[in-house]
Each structure stands twice: as structure tokens, then as C-alpha cells.
Nucleic acid binder design. Structure first.
Lengths: 233, 233
DNA sequence: CGATGAATTGACCGATGTCAAGTGGCGTGG
DNA sequence: CCACGCCACTTGACATCGGTCAATTCATCG
């Protein structure tokens, strides 16, 4: 599935880039590996945050459920991306769950191990800070979007982001190369599966997308972009 | 205004706690001070992130405006709280603005200075990580709230949080000791000034709050809490 | 080929945003 | 010191987006 050699993937990851070679080697030596089938959990919301993960193959979704059962899908993780970062801090609990979307493999370290490396190699700590700061900004944008934008805009944004992150060119357009249900798309866009379904049907009529069971092909990214980020005035 | 001596405030701040004494002394020695009148900006969304701030007196609001003019108020900063943290990373731009709500004073450091201290004192980096992780969780909660809860719930939550953060007991209840307009409350709750106004009028009829021009007194925190976080089933 | 779960579509309605008009209090200037 | 005007706030009327529920269709897999 994954074409890149693992070592290169790690070197280019947001978390481990800029680390000295020997540090990277030591880290790799101390990593555990965990491979999971589809729909399995790497970590669960509410359980003690003991390990930091770095996905090296496959995809996973980051979700959170409210006390009343509503589910939110914050982002999708692909190879080279990390999660569970806050395990470097002690005595915390994961605020969200990470569940595989296909067969996926991750490296993991005990939080304390990574904390020790951060003390020795500040670059690692700065990388972590940068990652958290980016997450913050993305969350702020999503909050804004939920507050000010209409459902169609948000769905369009989700689809455009997905084409960028997991898009694969096929003859009729760009396939979103993950099995995402309407429900999951809805959880990403902050709406209901019904609204997603209607929206996709509409766009299918216009020839902008083709959609099927847990499958979407975007035929015109342009059109979706115009919906997602309409020109000012 | 502020009763605590500054040194103690810094020692207890989330950012600087657990620092060795001498490090704290050095940091204080290198800090600049900035005092602003009401409605002035410590920093502006979009300008280069050069300094990290720590408020030592007064209050400020953290806001963000969308391209289309909508404004969001993410949180209110009081003495001992930091902002502009991401200035420790180079070449970034502030994603939001921080504006005073009353006469306020902050210490500030050039981002690079703080970055150097983080390299020397990892505890500082961990404090920063913890702070960012907390912000993340708060944002996630706010997102959830916007998605699943009704306006009244969210307004109640805002008021309860405000009583905790800036509440001052008065004879009829707890005064929110800051001049916050309906508009600003709306920006905090993710709604419009009209809905806030209606909600407060309603609660005033029920005797749960007293409200006036840029002024709210909560008479029954209990009642608001029942609205904010209704008992499951 | 049948069963299971995903997706579609229609009907309904309620919460809340928008717009417009009016009220009231506070500060400023005459 | 009073009056005027501004600005925060209130209240009503209205429209609409999109969530909810129910019924149906569709596709995929065993």
C-alpha cells in the first residue's frame, strides 16, 4: 500500500523532521509497531494517554462523541501523520478516539520515552508545538465554518480537502480513495447524513460528482471550490 | 486592580510554573511591559507573530474575524494567562487578535528569547505543550456545543464560565465584572445579539439574572447550570 | 437470490437568523 | 444643569435552512 520506505516517511514527518540522524535511529529502535484491521481502535477517548502514535500505513479517523451520542469527525490521518501527541504530558486522558478506516499500521512510543527525547532534542518539542498550533488553527477554521457557512459550503470544503489528502485520479475525475459513508462525511462537515445525501444528489445532477455506496468521485474540483469558497462580493 | 504581586502571579502561571528560580528571574529581567487602555490591541490577526505575552493585569478578549466580517470571540484572558504563544515558532502570523476589555498590562518577550529558554529549560516547552493541548480540547468542546446544543444552552454555558472567571459577588448574586455587550456575549456563544437579548430577557423574567447595559448579574448560577448542562435523560 | 445495511427522497416543522422599529440610559456639550 | 443625541438594547414579524422521521430503493455480499 505505502510506497515510501518507512525511514524516509519518518524523516519527512512533521513530528520527526529536523531531528539529528542518531536521534531518529534511537527513536526507531525504541518504537513498537501496531497493525490493525479496518474499524479497529488505536486509542479510545477517555482511556489514559500513554502512547504517542505515528501512522506509517493506511488511514484512520479522529472522532469524538458527546455525552448525548452525537459524533464528530475532526480529521483523517494518513501515513506520516501523528496522533495521541498529548501522551507526552503525564496523567492525561485521550480526548478523542482514533479508529482505522482501512488496514493500517502505526509506530508508537510510550509518552515518557518521547518526553525524554524532547528534553534532549528540543527540535522535537518545537515540532510538537507547531503541530498543536496547526491543529488549533484548523479547529478555529472549522468552528468559523460551522458558525457562518451553509451546509453545502461545508460539504464542498470537506470534499475538496479529501481530494487533496486521499484523492486518486481516475478516468472520470478524482476518486476519494477511502470508504467513507454519508454518515462519516456528515460528521466531517457538521451536518446530517440526509443533508449530505441531498447535496451529493444535487451535484450529481449537475455533473460535478459521481457517488455510490461509500464512494465519491469528484469530476470538477473547480465547481466544488467555487461552492466552498465563493468569491467575495 | 490586581492584588497579587507580579512575581507570585508568574510563578503560578500555567506557562512559567515549575521553572527553576534563576530561570524565572532571568526571564523577568528580559521581559518588556506593555500597558494599554481599553479597546486597544496587544496583537492583531494577520500580523507577524513576534512576541509572546503574559497578562499581569486587566482583561482581554481573543477574537477572530472571517473574510466575510463575522467575528468570533474565543476566550477571555485574565491575569496570569498567556497569549501569542505561537510566536516561539518562527515565520508565523497571529491567527487571531487580542484586544483589551479594560485597562490592562502584559509582559512580553520576543519569541526567539522564549524559544531559547525552552531549549535550556524543557519544563517551559512542556508547559507550552500543555497549554496548547488544553486550548485544543476547549475548542473541540466549543465545536461540539455549536453543533449539538441550542442557543440557550450555549449562552448559559458562557455565563457560567464568566461567573467563574470574572465573577464578583454582589448583594443580589454574582456580577460579571467586565463590560461585555450583548454583541460580545453573542460572539462567545456563537449566536446573534438578538438571541442573547431575548434569552436574557426571558431569564430576567424568571428571576435568574439581572441585566443592564453591558452588565449582567447572575442571581442563580444553579438555574443556569441546569440549562447549560441538562441532566441526561 | 435473499438479506443486510447504505443511500435516497419526501413531508414536516421548529429553532434561530434577519430586518425593522422603537425604547431607554448615559455622556457630552451648550 | 439640562437637553440632546448616540448607542446599547429590546421586541416583533417574518423567512428559511436544515434537522427529524418515515418510507422506499439500491447495491453488495454471502
Amino acid at each position: 500500500m505505502n510506497t515510501k520506505p518507512t525511514a524516509q516517511l519518518l524523516q519527512e514527518s512533521k513530528l520527526l523532521r529536523t531531528l539529528p540522524h542518531n536521534a531518529l535511529q534511537q527513536l526507531i529502535a525504541r518504537a513498537q509497531t501496531r497493525a490493525l484491521a479496518r474499524d479497529q481502535f488505536f486509542l479510545r477517548q477517555g482511556s489514559p494517554a500513554v502512547a504517542v502514535y505515528l501512522l506509517i500505513d493506511g488511514h484512520a479517523k479522529v472522532t469524538q462523541v458527546t455525552p448525548d451520542g452525537h459524533q464528530v469527525l475532526f480529521r483523517i490521518i494518513g501515513p506520516g501523520q501523528e496522533f495521541g501527541l498529548l501522551a507526552v504530558l503525564s496523567d492525561l486522558v485521550y480526548p478523542l478516539s482514533v479508529q482505522t478506516l482501512d488496514h493500517a499500521t502505526a509506530l508508537l512510543w510510550h509518552g515518557e520515552v518521547l518526553a525524554q527525547f524532547m528534553e534532549r532534542y528540543p527540535a522535537l518539542a518545537f515540532n510538537a508545538l507547531r503541530i498543536l498550533a496547526e491543529h488549533n488553527q484548523e479547529l478555529q477554521q472549522q468552528y468559523q465554518a460551522l458558525l457562518t457557512e451553509k451546509v453545502q459550503q461545508r460539504v464542498a470544503q470537506v470534499l475538496v480537502r479529501l481530494t487533496e489528502q486521499v484523492g486518486r485520479p481516475v478516468n472520470t475525475g478524482i476518486l476519494i480513495d477511502l470508504p467513507l459513508s454519508r454518515e462519516e462525511l456528515a460528521e466531517m462537515a457538521g451536518t446530517t447524513l440526509y443533508s449530505v445525501s441531498r447535496t451529493l444528489s444535487d451535484w450529481e445532477d449537475r455533473g460535478w460528482v459521481e457517488s455510490g455506496r461509500e464512494r465519491v468521485v469528484v469530476r470538477s474540483v473547480d465547481a466544488l471550490q467555487r461552492i466552498a469558497w465563493p468569491l467575495p462580493e
